[in-house]
């Protein structure tokens, strides 16, 4: 078993997911990815949980908010970063809602690579 940390990325936009994966890899972490919350939950239950999960909020099938609260309940130690391009639902701003659902950090799009690097470093340190 390597001691490299793993980051799991959930985003329905292929370009964005690929880009985040490459960035995260360049920061020195292993990466895995899924297209939506449903797929993410399936994949997670089939293998050992990652250290950090980065998820988009507006996605098909299972949206980000639901995914966050479900994962929070299932994996209390998992660090979660919610990412959103802005927008709000009737209940309020997506990023605020994500925090309430149990996300440890929130990042708004467009993603600033240096900020992402910082946030990941902090969350890994906390473990």
């Amino acid at each position: 078993m390597s001691d490299r940390k793993t980051v799991f990325i959930v985003d329905d936009d292929d370009f964005v997911r690929t880009m985040i994966s490459k960035l995260v890899a360049s920061f020195g972490y292993d990466t895995k990815g899924a297209r939506d919350g449903m797929q993410a939950i399936e994949m997670l239950s089939a293998s050992s949980p990652p250290d950090v999960l980065i998820t988009d909020i507006v996605m098909p099938r299972k949206g980000g908010l639901e995914t966050v609260s479900e994962l929070r309940a299932k994996y209390p130690a998992l660090k979660i970063i919610a990412v959103s391009g802005g927008g709000r639902s009737e209940q309020g701003d997506y990023l605020e809602l994500a925090r309430k659902s149990g996300a440890d950090e929130i990042i708004s799009k467009p993603i600033d690579p240096s900020q992402l690097k910082e946030v990941l470093k902090q969350l890994m340190g906390k473990q």
Binding site: D13, M19, K22, G85, K109, P110, I111, P113, S114
Partner: peptide, 18 residues
């Protein structure tokens, strides 16, 4: 538009960083 553009800009910024 904001949503789509933010995604697009994320990709640009990320790749520029790399």
């Amino acid at each position: 538009v904001a949503h789509d553009f933010n995604n697009l800009l994320s990709v640009v910024l990320g790749n520029v960083y790399l």
